[in-house]
């Protein structure tokens, strides 16, 4: 045990963060299952990215909810991928709209979801730093 105990990521504000991540995980997963099962040929890249986003949200939710040392590292990686995803996919979808004929959760920086996908990763990174 270190002298200053590491604060868990799943307490206090972290509990709210976990719930928001969980809702996005459920939403992104179910959306991507329907997209891939029903109409994958329409937009394979967009739908593959939806699936990737879903996995990232699931991993981030579990990692933040577990709140131990290892899960903190996993959370950093997942949230980092999410941050990169929303910025890169967001930018590509604005500059080359034809690349994404169908929306993903990260298209247009998450504008279809009140920009929560854009706000969530910096907030999660701040929280991970703060609880360190």
């Amino acid at each position: 045990m270190s002298e200053r105990a590491v604060r868990a990521t799943n307490q206090g504000f972290g509990r709210v963060l976990v719930v928001i991540y969980a809702i996005f995980a459920i939403g992104a997963t179910s959306r991507s299952v329907i997209q891939i099962a029903g109409r994958f040929d329409e937009a394979p890249i967009a739908y593959s990215l939806s699936a990737l986003a879903a996995v990232v949200y699931i991993v981030a939710t579990i990692a933040l909810a577990r709140g131990n040392r290892t899960s903190r590292k996993v959370a950093y990686v997942a949230v980092g991928i999410e941050m990169a995803g929303v910025l890169i996919i967001g930018a590509i979808s604005v500059i080359f709209p034809e690349a994404f004929p169908r929306a993903t959760v990260w298209s247009n920086f998450g504008s279809g979801y009140l920009f929560i996908p854009l706000v969530l990763p910096p907030v999660a990174l701040w929280w991970l730093r703060r609880t360190e």
Partner: peptide, 21 residues
């Protein structure tokens, strides 16, 4: 899920969870 996740929380964070849901 929110019921389960907020039930064991003895701080106001539990109430914030219910607010979001």
């Amino acid at each position: 899920g929110a019921w389960w996740w907020s039930k064991n929380d003895e701080t106001r964070a539990g109430s914030a969870v219910v607010l979001v849901v």
